[in-house]
């Protein structure tokens, strides 16, 4: 799967480096001074790199925990995120990471202890419950077999039951969660779409059925489940496809296990959109329905409202009102 690992010189003897090498047994191990030698250099081509990404093991030294952008949150007033990794195993055509970095390599920050420390510091400074999001710049669980991220962070989350932590994923790599007693303050939030959308746009990601099965296993184990319909994709027959899928979820996941639901139609910052659309000029998603609105590229306001209203109404038939949240960057 990953045949090349770049390792920052200073991390060559780090126990996590050794563990990852043992797990992956890569063909090539290449020493580097700093990850910036490899990652996000000028003249790199995301699309070509995505065909065979390498793993970079690096250390992140500052800005380890950051406030989320305005309007991003589930239930608490204050929200933070931290990114132990940049980039993703999957290849969703709408993914903003494609426009964010020119590199598709997986950049893993192995200094988990520093993240833990900074999260603890942030908690100390707050006198109210806050939410910490993971999976903002990657999928939280997709590379769990390699990183052991969830496995290593669950004890931290367990020490702070008054604060909320979200693992955002499309992955079915849930073994480490099933091997742990469920934590009520950790939401395992699944990004969901019907198979029609998955097949067309969420390349290499598990099918809707696989995600539902993983959600059910986790729900049965007691983990709170998040449903993330973000992004909703407009297409011919979207009503039929989404409503069939919503019914499938309803008949699989008990409402009581659902912690929260968020709904958001596809939106891109305009500059990022230009980069992504240039990477994939023959991509259907970018050929239909998206318009520049202020600083964002999105569906028209009416179309967004129609899509959101449709999803909200359908899901609202069996999910309590207070569980719904909207995570949307501002459009004009």
């Amino acid at each position: 799967m990953i045949d090349t690992i770049y390792i920052e010189e200073a991390l060559k003897d780090h126990p996590r480096t050794h563990a990852i090498i043992k797990r992956l047994r890569p063909t090539h191990i290449i020493s580097i001074e700093r990850y910036s030698e490899i990652f996000n250099r000028k003249k790199q081509n995301f699309r070509i790199q995505k065909r065979n990404p390498a793993l970079i093991l690096a250390q992140k030294n500052n800005r380890l925990v950051l406030p989320t952008p305005e309007g991003y949150g589930i239930s608490t007033q204050k929200n933070y995120y931290f990114s132990h990794m940049l980039n993703c195993l999957y290849d969703c055509r709408y993914c903003f990471l494609q426009g964010m970095y020119s590199s598709a390599h997986y950049l893993l920050f192995v200094n988990f202890e520093d993240f833990t420390h900074e999260i603890e510091m942030t908690i100390q400074q707050e006198n109210e419950p806050v939410t910490f999001f993971t999976g903002y710049d990657c999928d939280s669980l997709a590379l769990e077999n390699v990183t052991h991220f969830a496995h290593e962070f669950l004890p931290l989350f367990a020490r702070h039951p008054e604060h909320l932590f979200e693992l955002r994923t499309k992955s079915i790599n849930i073994k480490s969660l099933l091997q742990t007693e469920a934590l009520k303050n950790v939401v395992v939030a699944f990004s969901l779409n019907p198979n029609t959308v998955i097949n067309a746009l969420e390349h290499k990601a598990p099918s809707a059925e696989q995600r539902l099965k993983a959600m059910l296993d986790l729900a049965n184990h007691g983990w709170p489940i998040g449903l993330r319909f973000d992004p909703l994709i407009d297409h011919i027959d979207y009503q039929k496809n989404y409503s069939t899928f919503f019914k499938q979820i309803e008949s699989t996941i008990p409402e009581a296990s659902i912690h929260s639901v968020s709904i958001g139609p596809v939106r891109f910052p305009a500059e990022m959109y230009a980069k992504i659309a240039q990477l994939y000029p023959q991509e259907k998603l970018f050929a239909s329905g998206l318009k520049k609105r202020g600083q964002m590229v999105s569906y028209t306001q009416e179309r967004e409202q129609e899509l959101t209203f449709f999803a909200r109404t359908q899901l609202g038939r069996w999910i309590s009102d207070h569980k719904f949240f909207t995570c949307l960057p501002e459009a004009a």
Binding site: V197, L201, I236, K284, S288, G289
Partner: peptide
Amino acid sequence: HLDTIQLKL
């Protein structure tokens, strides 16, 4: 014309 065409997946 293109704006009126809905995406066919």
